[in-house]
């Protein structure tokens, strides 16, 4: 039968490509019993709307960012800890770890069955006007997603975290309604935000996880042998996806530098004391954070 996978990334985005690859492989391996149709670009709605449809069983699968989960349960915000890991490879290891597995399990509370973790590029900072030091970020309006851990980071830096929908971002950045954004190289290059930038901080300061999920209702109705195929294929394709992102980051960074934008390396020290203050605040919100740090330190 036909199943539906809804996600918000457009067709050229790696998440969509991985979803399509997984769908093709699953259809083949199940002899067409599980035929997953991929709906990119939010064709079935925003992440909030897709989650609602996963819960009713109108949509069967999705690959989603953690925004919707973190707004329901603070535990799902901990992956957005600043400087949790050094690079994509380490992020990939962490997403295969115990804490990540536990959070995947916990998705039953949202009416979902977690299939695995993926990610997008490491977060960087694109600024309209260059910043000499971290003090120069004070009072600047930085576009974020409305996700508590991300917004808190910018508040602690003295900046003004400004959530706004993605389609509004291009005009807002060009006109100066926001002074900067937290984004990966891929997004900055593809939509051309970098053309209005004055500096990119190569900060690698946060990872951006994605969860592949199935509707709990649809999952329960699926034959056990088909479920095994779906689990297996998603796990493989997600591993591939994580492996690709180090290259995607490097390639797009190169393009942006070649286009003439100043790219400045900054590290954890550059942002201090905001990073330490962030951990102090979030250790109080969720004890799981300390466990995740322990895993990351291994």
């Amino acid at each position: 039968r036909d199943y539906r996978l809804g996600l918000i990334t457009p067709p050229p985005h790696q998440w969509t490509k991985s979803a399509e690859a997984a769908a093709a492989e699953i259809a083949e391996a199940t002899g067409g019993r599980v035929n997953i149709l991929v709906f990119p670009s939010g064709q079935l709605g925003s992440e909030a709307h897709v989650l609602q449809q996963l819960q009713t069983g109108a949509v069967d699968f999705s690959m989603m960012t953690l925004g919707e989960f973190a707004s329901r349960d603070a535990d799902y915000g901990i992956f957005h800890a600043p400087y949790l890991v050094e690079d994509i490879a380490a992020a990939g290891d962490l997403l295969q770890g115990e804490v990540a597995a536990g959070l995947l399990q916990g998705m039953s509370q949202f009416g979902l069955h977690g299939l695995g973790w993926g990610l997008a590029g490491m977060r960087q900072v694109l600024l309209a006007a260059p910043a000499e030091d971290v003090g120069a970020l004070a009072g600047r309006k930085i576009r974020t997603v409305p996700l508590a851990p991300e917004m808190e980071f910018w508040s602690l830096l003295g900046a003004a975290p400004t959530p706004m929908p993605l389609p509004a971002l291009y005009d807002a950045f060009a006109n100066g309604q926001v002074d900067g954004m937290q984004i990966d190289y891929e997004g900055s290059w593809n939509t051309g935000y970098y053309t209005h930038g004055g500096q990119m901080l190569a900060s690698d300061h946060m990872i951006f996880p994605m969860a592949a999920v199935a509707s709990g209702r649809s999952w329960a109705a699926m034959a056990p042998e088909d479920r095994a195929v779906v689990e297996e294929v998603f796990s493989e394709r997600l591993k591939d996806l994580v492996g690709l992102y180090a290259g995607i980051d490097a390639e797009n960074r190169e393009r942006i530098e070649a286009a003439g934008l100043t790219v400045t390396e900054v590290g954890r020290d550059w942002f201090e004391p905001a990073v330490s203050a962030w951990y102090d605040a979030w250790h109080e919100k969720t004890p799981l954070l300390a466990e995740l740090e322990k895993e990351a330190a291994r």
């Binding site: 457009p10 985005h13 389609p167 291009y170 593809n190 939509t191 051309g192 053309t195």
Partner: peptide, 19 residues
């Protein structure tokens, strides 16, 4: 321009909105 529709197209097609 500016145009909400062209921006949405740019976001969907992953091509620079300015162009």
């Amino acid at each position: 321009p500016p145009s909400m529709l062209l921006i949405l197209f740019g976001v969907t097609a992953q091509i620079p909105v300015g162009e």
